[in-house]
Write a protein that binds this DNA or RNA. Sequence first.
DNA 1: ACCTGAACACCGTTCAAGT
DNA 2: ACCTGAACACCGTTCAAGT
Lengths: 227, 227
Amino acid sequence: MSTAEQSEPKAEPRRPLSRERVLRGAIELADERGIESVTMRALAQQLGVEAMSLYNHVANKDEILDGMVDTVMEEINDATSSISGEWKSAMRRRILAARQVLLRHPWATGALVSRTSDSVPLTKYYESLIGLFHAGGFSYDLTHHALHALGSRALGFTQEPFDDSQEIPDPAALAQQMAAEYPNTAALLESVTHDADTTLGWCDDQFEFEFALDILLDGLERHRDAG
Amino acid sequence: MSTAEQSEPKAEPRRPLSRERVLRGAIELADERGIESVTMRALAQQLGVEAMSLYNHVANKDEILDGMVDTVMEEINDATSSISGEWKSAMRRRILAARQVLLRHPWATGALVSRTSDSVPLTKYYESLIGLFHAGGFSYDLTHHALHALGSRALGFTQEPFDDSQEIPDPAALAQQMAAEYPNTAALLESVTHDADTTLGWCDDQFEFEFALDILLDGLERHRDAG
DNA sequence: ACCTGAACACCGTTCAAGT
DNA sequence: ACCTGAACACCGTTCAAGT
């Protein structure tokens, strides 16, 4: 009637370690505390083991990062591969579904763009997008350009060099303060924050994502019809 | 007639250290050997000094990274701020000029998207783009959407989750090998590598960048005219 | 005011030793 | 076959001491 008592954080019931469990643990850690807190020692501790044990199941830390990305890509494939229909609508729904997966793993976009080795689930994802374009009347050549044009948007994310996620406590004050040196930026800020449809933050990221996505899909369709 | 002989690598004639010199040294190091080789110790060595001396001129390593990005952004501002004319052509030329600067500093795109603090030269750059859009008949609201739609492309770069920079030694063989599991990808690969206008690598990144940029600028113009 | 040696807390990783 | 303690080479950073 007595199992060993243990008060370690996250102590799962001590199943044997495996590559699978190492990757799941790493993803859990990254989701909860950020990718930078995924260290060999912290990951081992969460799994109730010493850091060195991890090397029995993965070659090194890079392989963990690659494995984490692959796991997320499989999640995306599960969420998107069955979405079909008219090419533009299907493409749109697939990409937005991929986006939902990535929003659950904020660290994954950075890991995706920085990895160099190629990934089977990533290749599968693109294989399926390519099929969708081709079935929609796109030549393979135009499909190739289309994938470049979409860039990381094909997977449901963009990376921008400014941070719009933060709330602006007093937009009017900020605009006034910027007005002297940055008049256009101040005017934009004032206009945008007065607008009814952006009440969430000062940017509705989902709206902006779909806005750009639709411009690209429409533009690509025009190229197809002109070709 | 005799200056002290010294055989250290990169030994500049021992000017006094300064924040300016620290940042220039860091950029030089990153350009030549990659951002991951910019460590406090390596940077100090290149400057002919001990690692600890750097802390007299910058607060910490993050401030060095921020300073490196700001320096590159100033280079971009110098290269773009005088480009004017009809909005679409001017926007296009500015963005392509920014791209040329970033191609000289391959590490800068990664540093740009990962930094959180806001940057004066980055704000200046966007101030000038906003001005160009507004002068071109865009409302501030539409300009805001436009900047989101361009994303990092406004600065001349994209980040894609696959690497097309590598040469494919034998594309036909690769296509045949992929054909069973990834038929669409194989067909795309075969079509693209047979094509005359992509003889450089298997992707002409400059072409792809302009292709997507033009779709976006044209699409934005349509929105302006429809509004 | 600027530079430095020694030290600290943290990495990823190796290796010989345990079971 | 899997796990571990001790150790190594490397980080960024602090601090007291030098000039």
